[in-house]
């Protein structure tokens, strides 16, 4: 079946951090075939700059922005959350398990919890007003939008009025859950429809999986 067969099973084993698709499928919403398809994507991303089979931050940024030097607060946070071992790279197992949260069939509570950790910039267990302002500033900067400082303060203050129901100046995980239940659109970006059936979205992956299944 031509070049789609170029990555053999033996080559897979050589990739650092490679994990058995059966195990990954049992721990995530993905099927074994979908984990195989994700491995193709992983190989592409993890060899885009440094050919070591691990996703470095520059490679992650390149995939997100088509520019490895793009600095983005949120991409950094996502990378750090995917990098569970905190060793500066995303390994295959980390990639699959983290993406599993973004699967349409993943538990809503996992998506809400992931988003909370994402926005808890300093990992204190709370989203603080200063963090929220920092994130709004980052968003405005990347969007080339300008809002006066007064207006930004007003947006942040209003958000805290609505979300910080205990009125202690910070948003805890329970308050976050309640806030998201009132505003479900806040976690819309925590679901990637592409993942519903990644093997169909990427037909070349099906071809490779079929070859492997028949081996």
């Amino acid at each position: 079946m031509g070049c789609v067969c170029s990555t053999s099973s033996s080559e897979k084993v050589k990739t650092p951090g490679y994990e058995d698709p059966t195990i990954l499928a049992s721990e995530t919403p993905f099927t074994v075939s979908e984990v195989d398809a994700l491995y193709e994507l992983y190989l592409k991303l993890s060899n885009s700059i440094i050919e070591d089979g691990l996703i470095h931050k520059e490679e992650f940024q390149l995939a997100l922005f088509r520019n490895k030097n793009e600095k983005n607060l949120f991409a950094d946070r996502i990378f750090d959350l995917f990098d569970v071992k905190r060793n500066g790279v995303i390994e295959f197992g980390e990639f699959v398990r983290s993406l599993g949260v973004f699967h349409p069939n993943a538990a809503l509570e996992d998506k809400i919890a992931f988003a909370f950790r994402l926005y808890d910039l300093r990992q204190t267990g709370y989203i603080e007003k200063q963090e929220l302002k920092e994130m709004v500033l980052a968003l405005l900067h990347e969007s080339d939008l300008y809002l006066s400082d007064e207006m930004i303060e007003s947006i942040v203050d209003k958000t805290f009025e609505d979300a910080d129901t205990k009125e202690d100046g910070r948003i805890d995980e329970d308050e976050w859950k309640a806030f998201v239940s009132q505003h479900p659109s806040l976690i819309k970006n925590m679901t990637l429809p592409y993942l519903k059936d990644i093997t169909l979205a990427f037909p070349s992956f099906i071809a490779r999986t079929e070859v492997e299944d028949s081996e």
Partner: peptide, 26 residues
Amino acid sequence: VAPVTMNAFELISKSQGLNLSSLFEK
């Protein structure tokens, strides 16, 4: 521009850095 009517998290959720669908673009 609509941001004034949005809450801060709505604004933030529109960041390209949070749009992981870009990872799947060929």
